[in-house]
Each structure stands twice: as C-alpha cells, then as structure tokens.
C-alpha cells in the first residue's frame, strides 16, 4: 500500500509551507497532493509556486498531484480551476464536478474525497471519464468499500482518508471571519491565526468541531492506523494522511512502519497519541457515527462515544 499526504487545508505562511514540503521530499510518502483546496482568497502561494513544489517533489521521487478547490462559486475560481486542469504535466485531483467536466476525456485525474462516489454506477462513470484513482468519501464504511472494490473497473486505484481531522462541510460563509465579527470580504485572513483551525466546543467544554474558514472539520482526529491490515485485505492502494501543524512527519513514519511491517498495528496508536490533541475517532469505518471510537476486541466491538463508554 502506498502512502499519500493530502493538501494542506489550513492557511499557513508561505515560508512554513515551503519548509514543510522541503521536509516532505525526504519523508516516506509516495504521493503528495498540493494546492489550496479550501478558500480562493488564500494566495500566499501562487500557482507557479505550487508547480515548482510539484517539480521538486517529483525530482525527489514522489508523485505530485494538484488539488482543485471543493466549493467553486465565482468566475475567478473557475479560472484558477481551469489553469490547474489544463496543466499538461501533473495529475489533477478533482474536488468538484466542474473540474471533472474540464478534465473528462482530456487527462487522467483523481476523483477526490469530495466527489460523491457512493456506488459502482458512479465509479464506472468516473473511470469512463478518465479517473485513474478515486478517494472514498469520508462518511462511507468498510462494507460499502468492500462492495465497491468488488465492482471497481480495471486500472482504477482506491484511496482512503486514513488520518486527520475530517473535512465535514463547506459553506459560502466564512466561519472564522464570522467568529471574529468580520465580513467575509474583509476577513483580514484571520484563519492564518489558527495553524490547525479554530476549536469549537460544546457548552460543556467538550471539543466538537474545528472551524477552518468556509470549511468545518471534526475536532477529533480520524485515525485508521489500526485498520491498515484490513485496508490491505480490501486491496486499498493508498492511505491518506492530512497535514497538521505539528507531528505530521512522526505520523507519516508511524504509518509507513506499519505498512512496512516493522511496527505492529497495535503499537501504533500509542505513538500517534501525542499528535491527536482532542481524541481519535473511527466510527465511519465501522458504519457508525463518525465521532465514535471503536476498538475491535475479537468479534465484539467496544466503542466510546462523546457520551461515555458503551458496548455494542
């Protein structure tokens, strides 16, 4: 199984981004997704910068992929998406049907996690349009994946979002600007204050969501490290790690060691714990509420929800 690094979903300073990818060049990931996938106003890096990073990563032996934005509304955003789609060199990850419309029949592409691929009919349609890889939508479970793998068209790779805060929703409204009582048009790039998004807690102080501009994420970290052997059995080709401001390289190393067979999957959660600030979740994989944490003990699954420990 290959390891991928998803696009940086937060607004980091230009130098931080450049340093980050310099380190990625030496890290044991096979595929790196690049570009701004959340908000078109974030322009610390220009398209040429991303292309240059892609070239450097390619020279370091990585597969570089350019990701498009998920929520495309304005004409200017369509223009950026067109420029990315028409790049003749790097594969594009389409995160909106608009990008697929630009790529269909012209270039092989990756259907990203925000393309609604729920059944074999859609999978066949994407393959016919030129998809070479697809990413399982985060809310889907292992049984759905098993059925989709059985029906998967030849040559189509499957990727699973395996570690990071879950991207849950996208809005026209910027929730970070809203929290700061600023209009979206004059947001002052407050999202830059939060290298891992802005934590939102319930009224009893339980971490619940993370606000990342127009994107809403889970506060808990989705962690499928213990499920890597099962993913391998399901013939998953790629496991994705979503970048965070600290610990990303330790996370990559841990996943790599498990895939390599040098680390027992059961020993991995302890190593990852320091990089999971508000608890881990894996419920979606088991067809439950995403925020649940399920530990498989023999035939019985034990899980703890926000409400406390339960048995199911």
């Amino acid at each position: 199984m290959k390891l991928s690094l998803g696009p940086i979903l937060y607004f980091w300073p230009r130098d931080t981004v450049l340093d980050f990818y310099r380190r990625v060049a030496d890290a044991p990931v096979d595929i790196v997704y690049l570009g701004e996938a959340v908000c078109s106003k974030r322009r610390a890096l220009r398209p040429e910068d991303w292309i240059q990073i892609a070239e450097e990563l390619e020279a370091a032996g990585k597969e570089a992929v350019l990701s498009t934005m998920t929520l495309i509304e304005a004409e200017s955003e369509l223009g950026v998406m067109r420029r990315i789609s028409e790049n003749a060199r790097f594969t594009v990850e389409a995160n909106d049907m608009g990008a697929i419309n630009m790529l269909a029949g012209r270039a092989r592409f990756v259907a990203g996690p925000n393309i609604n691929t729920y059944n074999a009919g859609t999978l066949a349609m994407l393959a016919a349009a030129g998809a070479r890889r697809w990413v399982l939508p985060v809310e889907l479970d292992r049984n759905t994946l098993r059925a989709l793998q059985a029906a998967r068209p030849a040559g189509l790779e499957t990727e699973v979002f395996a570690f990071g805060r879950l991207p849950l929703a996208f809005s026209a409204r910027c929730f970070t600007a809203r929290a700061h009582n600023l209009p979206k048009d004059e947001c002052g790039f407050r999202c830059g204050d939060y290298a891992d998004g802005m934590l939102l807690s319930s009224q009893e102080d339980k971490p619940f969501l993370v606000l990342n501009g127009i994107q809403t994420q889970s506060a808990e970290t989705y962690n499928l490290v213990a499920e890597l052997p099962e993913m391998k059995d399901l013939a998953v080709d790629v496991a994705r790690i979503s970048p965070q401001s600290s610990g990303t390289f330790e996370i990559i190393n841990t996943f790599h060691a498990v895939i390599d067979g040098t680390l027992e999957p059961a020993a991995a959660p302890t190593r990852l714990a320091p990089h999971i600030p508000y608890g881990a979740c894996n419920g979606h994989w088991y067809g439950q509420a995403g925020m649940n944490w399920i530990r498989e003990v023999g035939a019985e699954a034990v899980f703890s929800a926000m409400g406390g420990l339960k048995r199911g």
Partner: peptide, 19 residues
C-alpha cells in the same frame, strides 16, 4: 448554511446523513 450534498456533519454525530 452548508453546500448541500457535501455536508457530513450529521453522519459524524449520528451515523445518518442527508446523502
């Protein structure tokens, strides 16, 4: 308030979503 068809807040919390 979210782009319909691309919101999984409900399945994150309850296991059931609009999609």
């Amino acid at each position: 308030v979210m782009a319909e068809g691309r919101c999984t807040l409900s399945s994150y919390v309850t296991g059931e979503s609009p999609n």
